[in-house]
Design a binder for these strands. Structure first.
Lengths: 342, 342
DNA sequence: CTGAAAGCGCTTACAG
DNA sequence: CTGAAAGCGCTTACAG
C-alpha cells in the first residue's frame, strides 16, 4: 500500500504543496476554505507525514536513546517504565540498548545512537565504565545527555541520583539500632560510584558508632548476582562466625544471602540480620521478608526524561542550559530480616 | 559541533559527491587511489552518514517497534532482552512501547509506530485486545509484523508461541500425579488466548483423569497480580476447604497464593500443592520454592526478531513471504510446592 | 573511472 | 492568501 504524500493531496485539490503543508500545520496565512478542504482530504486519505522527510528537514527525530546495564532487573526495568511513559507523554519514542555491564558494548552503543542522530541520550553506566571518552563525545557533539543511577562524577552533565552514601549509612545505622555489633558488607564492584558510595556510607556508620572498621568484613561482588550472595554468606559464616549483621549492595544479592542462611539453619534476624538495597518486588515475598532501602525507580526515570527534555528544548531554541542534579529521597524499609526481638 | 557531510569531503578533495558516496560504500567503479583518499579523510573527520537522509532515500530506518503489555515483568523483560540483543546483532534498533494492558493505548502506539515508519513491528497483545482493527492496519500497510506470547489466532501473521494448552495440561497432570484430587484453577482474564488455552488445558487434564470439572473451582484474575493470588487463595480455602491443588495462570499470582497459605498455616504442598506458570526468577527463591512451567523467554524474543527480519528482507527484495508459526518447548519444573511426601 | 542530475518528502523564507 | 523555489543529505541510474 502506497503512502499518501503532500504532493498527492495538492494535485487532487489543484493547489500547491506549500499550501497543503501550511494548511496541515495550521499556519495562519491559509484561507479557512482551503484549510478545511485540505484537512478533509488528508483525513479521508489517512495522511500521515513521512517522518523520514520531517526528520531530515527539521534535524530532529523525536527519538531518544537509553543505554542501561540490564533490562531483566527489577530496578532498571522500573526506571525504563518511568522513562518511556514520560517520553511518550511528550511525544518522544525511546530506543533501548543494553550494555550488559560491558564497557566495550556501551561504547559501540553510544556510537550507534550518535550515528542514528537521536535527539538525546539517557544513560546508566556499566560496571566496567572507568573510561569516559565515549561519554565526552556525546557532550562534545552537543547532544543532550542525562546520567542516572550509575553515574560518573567526572562527567559534567545533568544527573538523577540518590544519596547513596547517606542511604547506606542509614541502612547500617538501622542494623546497629537493632543490636548488631559486627556487621559485614557485601559491596558492589570497584568501579561504580554507587558501590563506592554505599561502601563509604557503611564505613561512616561504623565510625559514627565507634565500631572499628575491619576490611576483612567487606566482600566484593563481581557480577552482583544471587549466586554471589549465596557464596559470600557461606564465606562470611566460615570466616567470621560471629557476624550478626550484613549490609548488602542490592536486594538480588541479599536474597542469595538469605537463601544460604535459610538452608543452613542460620536464623535471620536472630543470628544474623540482613538488609538489602533497592526494594525489589521479590523482597517482600521471600521468607523472611527482606528489609531494604527504598529507592524511587519510576520517578528516577520520569525525572531523568524531564531533565533531558529541558535540555533538548534549550538546544532547539538555542538557549543556554545549566546542567542540574536531582537527588531523590530514599527510605529504610523495615521488614522481618532485621526485626530482632528486643 | 557541525556534522560532516559528503559535500564537505567532496569539496576538500576536489571531487564530486557522487564519487565520495560510492567510495564510502565500496562501489567497484572507483579507483583505488580515490577510494583511499576518501576513506582516509572520512575517517579523519569522523564522518558518519546522516541517517535522516539515508532513511529518506532508502525508505527504511533499521528500526523496529515493540509493543508489550508490561516492562516490569520477569517474563516480558526477558523477551525484550532477547529481542534487543538479536536486533542489535543484525543492525536494528528497537523502540519499546508499553501498552499497560490497555487496548486504547495499544492502538495509539500502533499508530505512532506506523507514522514513525518503523521497518517492522513486534507485539504481544494487551489483555483488553479483542478488537483487531489496528493490527489489521499494520498488515494492510504491508509492514512486517510478528506476534508473540499473547497472540490473536484471528490475525494471520508470523507468531512465536508455546503450546499453552499442552503446557497447562502437563502442569495439572503433574498435580494429579502428586496425588491431588480436587484442583482449583486461578485463570487469567477472559480475552487473552493464552489464558483461554491454559484454562482448556486444565479442563482437559481433569477429563483425561476422569475428575469432574467444577466451574466453581475456577477463579478469574482481572489484573493478574500478586494481590489477586493472595485474595483468591483465601477465597478458595473458604469456599472449598478440601481443595488440595491449585494451578495458577502465572508465577506472580502463584506467589500471592503461597503468601496467603504461608501466613495462615496452610502447609504447601502437604495441605495444598501449588503450581505456577512461566518460571519467574523469584519462584526459586521463595519458600516453599514454587513448581512451575518453564517457558523460554529469551529465545522467544530471539526467534520473534528472526521471523521479523526474514519478513523485512523479503519485503525489501520484493519476494513473497509465508507467515510462519514457531512453537517453543515448555517443561514442568518440579520444586517444593508440589513435592508431596508419598 | 568520474560526475551531473534527479529524487526521496517535507518545511519555510520569500515574492507576488 | 497562494505558490515557486531552495534545501535538508543522501543514493543511484545514467551519460560520458
Amino acid at each position: 500500500m502506497k503512502n499518501i504524500t503532500l504532493k498527492e493531496i495538492a494535485e487532487t485539490l489543484g493547489i500547491s504543496i506549500t499550501t497543503v503543508s501550511k494548511a496541515l500545520k495550521n499556519y495562519p496565512d491559509v484561507s479557512p476554505r482551503t484549510r478545511q478542504a485540505v484537512m478533509n482530504l488528508a483525513h479521508q486519505l489517512q495522511y500521515t507525514p513521512n517522518s523520514f522527510a520531517v526528520n531530515l528537514r527539521t534535524q530532529e527525530s523525536k527519538t531518544i536513546g537509553l543505554i542501561i546495564p540490564e533490562v531483566v532487573h527489577h530496578f532498571f526495568s522500573s526506571v525504563i517504565n518511568g522513562i518511556i511513559a514520560e517520553a511518550e507523554k511528550n511525544g518522544y519514542l525511546v530506543i533501548i540498548l543494553q550494555s550488559n555491564e560491558s564497557l566495550e558494548l556501551e561504547k559501540k552503543q553510544v556510537a550507534l545512537l550518535l550515528s542514528k542522530r537521536v535527539d538525546g541520550i539517557l544513560m546508566s553506566l556499566s560496571n566496567e565504565s572507568n573510561d569516559d571518552e565515549h561519554i565526552r563525545e556525546i557532550i562534545h557533539k552537543g547532544i543532550p545527555f542525562v546520567q542516572f543511577d550509575k553515574i560518573s562524577k567526572l562527567i559534567h552533565s545533568s544527573k538523577v541520583i540518590i544519596n547513596d552514601q547517606l542511604a547506606a549509612m542509614q541502612a547500617v545505622q538501622h542494623l546497629i539500632d537493632n543490636g548488631c555489633k559486627k556487621i559485614a558488607h557485601i559491596r558492589g564492584p570497584v568501579n561504580p560510584q554507587n558501590a563506592i558510595d554505599r561502601f563509604l556510607g557503611y564505613k561512616k556508620a561504623l565510625e559514627k558508632n565507634t565500631i572499628p572498621f575491619d576490611s576483612s568484613l567487606v566482600y566484593t561482588c563481581q557480577r552482583v548476582s544471587f549466586e554471589e550472595g549465596y557464596a559470600f554468606a557461606e564465606q562470611i559464616k566460615k570466616e567470621h562466625p560471629d557476624v550478626d549483621g550484613v549490609f548488602v549492595i542490592t536486594d538480588l544479592v541479599a536474597v542469595g544471602v538469605l537463601a544460604y542462611f535459610n538452608e543452613n539453619q542460620i536464623r535471620v534476624p536472630d543470628d544474623v540480620a540482613v538488609i538489602g538495597f533497592s526494594n525489589w518486588f521479590m523482597s517482600q515475598v521471600i521468607t523472611p521478608k527482606l528489609s531494604t532501602v527504598d529507592q524511587p525507580s519510576d520517578e528516577m526515570g520520569t525525572r531523568a526524561f524531564q531533565l533531558l527534555l529541558e535540555q533538548m528544548i534549550a538546544r532547539r531554541d538555542q538557549k543556554p542550559f545549566q546542567a542540574q542534579t536531582i537527588e531523590l529521597k530514599t527510605a529504610v524499609v523495615q521488614r522481618e530480616s532485621t526485626r530482632k526481638k528486643s
